[in-house]
């Protein structure tokens, strides 16, 4: 076992042990914090496919997070108010079923990622960052002006949505769901990184010219990665909305896009567990330091500076040493 997989395993163990302890000790707030961390981690695992593996620095991934959130919000809003979502030739009802909501969140985010990717991938570098940011702002202002779904105030959902066989209102059970989805996304990322597609994507990031000269389409590989990435972040958005039982335009804001990037840098870019470590560290800091000092973001900023200057591998890099090639 390499040192990195040991660190990864330790992280996973903590993500199992701490909520279990909180459950036994009757500390539901700790479970909620852990759930928040795990959902952020899932969103960042999604982003890391684009950013870490594909080298696409998307400053607009809040679009997918928000679309996932609004997918949940709109469907549940209609269901709780007994208003059909669409009443024409056929009637489409809202739903309180998590699996259906997740599917909608994934499909909607993937479609949005396809459109945004098609346009944004015509650029690269700083222009790519700026165009994805612009898309993020478009969605943000659209959500603010969308009166039907709460506009600036957002939408409140009274009861958490259902999952067959589970009581999702019990914090530990909802946590279990989110954790299972995180594991699935990590598994998917690990498979993709080692696959043929991963090899092409990896090379498209490092030497785009080479990929073309061996007869492969690097741009299309990047687009596909961007779509998968958006879909995973969208799923995380649906979970985040369900955790808070609330959606608002802030899920679309550029702060959110920035935070997702921060998770990855904190934890270690292009490391499988980097986004997980980063999200956990972020939520822990937010909670512990945020309690002590309102301006804790200053400390976060200082930490980011230190990491960017001295520890490019982030937290995982610090603990596990240099990245090893996956073979």
């Amino acid at each position: 076992m390499t040192r990195e997989s040991f660190v990864n395993l330790a992280l996973l163990t903590a993500l199992v042990a701490v909520p279990l302890w909180a459950w036994v000790a009757g500390e539901p707030f700790t479970i909620t914090l852990a759930t928040r961390a795990v959902i952020f981690a899932l969103a960042a695992v999604g982003l890391n496919l684009a950013l870490g593996l594909g080298g696409m620095v998307s400053f607009g991934h809040a679009v997918f997070f928000g679309l996932g959130g609004y997918s949940m919000g709109i469907l549940a809003h209609h269901a709780q108010n007994f208003l059909p979502l669409y009443d024409g030739l056929i009637v489409i009802e809202g739903t309180k079923s998590m699996p259906v909501i997740w599917l909608v969140a994934i499909v909607v985010s993937a479609l949005a990622a396809l459109l945004i990717g098609l346009l944004s991938l015509r650029t690269s570098g700083v222009y790519f960052i700026m165009i994805t940011l612009a898309f993020g702002q478009m969605f943000y202002y659209f959500a603010i002006s969308w009166r039907a779904y709460g506009g600036e105030d957002g939408l409140s959902i009274w009861v958490r949505n259902d999952f067959p066989g589970l009581n999702t209102l019990a914090p530990i059970q909802f946590y279990g769901l989110c954790f299972a989805l995180l594991l699935a996304a990590l598994w998917l990322s690990a498979r993709i990184a080692r696959s043929s597609f991963g090899l092409v994507l990896n090379a498209a990031r490092q030497v785009p010219g080479r990929v073309e000269t061996v007869g492969l389409d690097g741009q299309r590989a990047k687009l596909v990665a961007f779509v998968i990435s958006g879909a995973i972040t969208g799923l995380a958005g649906a979970l985040f909305a369900d955790l808070n039982r609330f959606v608002s335009p802030t899920m679309f804001s550029w702060h959110m896009s920035g935070e997702l990037i921060v998770f990855i840098i904190l934890g270690g870019a292009a490391r499988l567990f980097g986004p997980v470590a980063g999200a956990v560290l972020f939520v822990a800091m937010e909670h512990v330091l945020g309690d002590l000092w309102d301006h804790w973001h200053i400390l976060l900023g200082a930490l980011l500076l230190v990491i960017v200057l001295f520890a490019r591998g982030g937290l995982i890099g610090l603990l596990a040493g240099k990245a090893r090639n996956h073979d």
């Binding site: 498979r191 696959s195 043929s196 597609f197 007869g215 590989a221």
Partner: peptide, 16 residues
């Protein structure tokens, strides 16, 4: 990567 291009099957997502 070259062999993959020659074989023309880059769209495999799961198999190492």
């Amino acid at each position: 990567l070259g062999a993959l291009g020659a074989a023309g099957r880059p769209w495999r997502f799961f198999r190492p």
